[in-house]
Design a binder for these strands. Structure first.
Lengths: 134, 134
DNA sequence: CTACGTGCAAATAGTTTGCCGGAAC
DNA sequence: GTTCCGGCAAACTATTTGCACGTAG
């Protein structure tokens, strides 16, 4: 049987930090945030709890091109846009999910459970000129 | 001006190893492969040259959920299917590229240059039952 | 001959883990 | 009181880098 999870202030604050963040924080960033309210928290605890919360499905892990784990408190179906200039990561919701699923159901020899899409480009702040051209 | 690249047997063999591999090898795997023909090659050299070849666009870097960089000698537009059981990574070519681009052009405040899709699921070898059910 | 590339080992970044004391229940 | 959890530091994994020597051009 699975061990029951006890309450801990650390875990609570770590979850809050992810949920309240808009910036898909790394473990390090969560650590800095939690430290503001629990100055004695350790980085190890942050890592342990982020893994635990991920396993429980309370947060989502994100691995992008920089090979650093990021965390996302948004549990709804969505994709990500990553700005190649400022590194900003924004959520987008596209109805293409179904379309993709339909398309991909045609793939032979592979049973698809899930998919992941990332868009790379530039956000308005970083490249406003492109918007007139497009 | 960019420094000109000299020939080196190591670089040649490293590129060959990636091109001839079907399994999207990690640096470690490329190292083992190259060691068969150049036993004195060092891991540092493999990393240095994989980065160089990536910059030159001669191979492509792949970052999946496991925090390890992989390399792909297939430079054509394609996506990846990752088997959650055996970890096998297979290439697929989908015409959805255009469809996706069209869909995604509707995204506001973001100029999309590129996108990346990964499918997660099970390959035939790992889950043959699903194919009768579907 | 003059860089550039390699081998080697040390350094770094991100993450995990063992141990012991402290908190939850 | 028992068991889980956190703090700390050491360990680990993947990758990068400095240096002295070798090699391409």
């Amino acid at each position: 049987m699975v061990a029951s999870k006890r309450y801990s202030k650390q875990r609570e604050k770590i979850l809050e930090a992810v949920m309240h963040s808009e910036e898909h924080p790394t473990a390090e960033m969560v650590y800095e945030e939690v430290r503001k309210v629990l100055p004695k928290v350790s980085l190890g605890t942050v890592y342990r709890n982020l893994n635990l919360l991920t396993e429980e499905g309370r947060v989502r892990e994100l691995i992008l091109e920089d090979n650093v784990k990021r965390y996302d408190g948004n549990l709804t179906d969505h994709y990500h846009c990553i700005c190649k200039s400022c590194g900003d990561i924004m959520d987008i919701t596209l109805e293409s999910g179904e379309i993709l699923h339909n398309l991909s159901s045609r793939i032979n020899n592979f049973q698809i459970d899930d998919h992941k899409i990332e868009f790379y480009g530039h956000c308005v702040e970083c490249d406003p000129e492109n918007y007139t051209a497009a």
